[in-house]
Amino acid sequence: MSDLLSFFAENSSEVLLKIREHLGLVLLSIVIATAIAVPLGVAAAKWSKLRTPVIGTANVVQTIPSLALFGFLIPMPFIGGIGPRTAIIALVLYALLPIVRNTYAGIEAISDGLREAALGMGMTSKQLLWFVELPLALPILLAGIRVAAVTGVGVATIASLIGAGGLGDFIFRGVSTVDSTVILAGALPAAIMALLIDGGLHLVEKRLDWKNK
């Protein structure tokens, strides 16, 4: 433990840099994934024909092991290669499923009676989405983002292998030099980051749920 503390003290600027890189990978990929996944989830809920292809595809992507996904992406033209860009693409692909699925589930959970009441007072389908469906689906949607972000923190450690940086650099350096202090210097901040993101988003979820007011 004291080894770890002195490692942090001696390498504080590098530790902070790796934490920043790691957080950057996760945040950027979650923002991009949300921008793609929410419209996809809405579309799947609105047009039942899209449901199986959209959720099925996201499901398939999710089942690919993360290391294999990085492997697939490296030889790809334009989107592949070595570096953070490839890592972000992989992280986005991973984050899609939980967000798509929860957006879909959140909208599906709204009762037909409520939808009919909203249409009956003269809402257009766009207003139904903005005034009723998205606000009511929001807590479930956020739960999907939370799952995606926490998973993303873990997957991002592996992204170190393809030169994306982040806390994985310490972990793999520690593994190759058989130095558990260096392993912990990467693993511990990553675990704390995952817990903080989980807790923080959970609070936001609770605050946005009308049932808790």
Partner: peptide
């Protein structure tokens, strides 16, 4: 139909109010 429905008041059992909006917001929604 959207115009028609806005010109007609519609009251239904229980489920009619939007649960995430306040009484004032629900009342002024139309």
């Amino acid at each position: 139909l959207v115009e028609l429905r806005r010109s007609i008041g519609y009251v239904i059992q229980e489920v009619g109010l939007l649960p995430h909006m306040t009484v004032a917001q629900n009342t002024g929604l139309v």
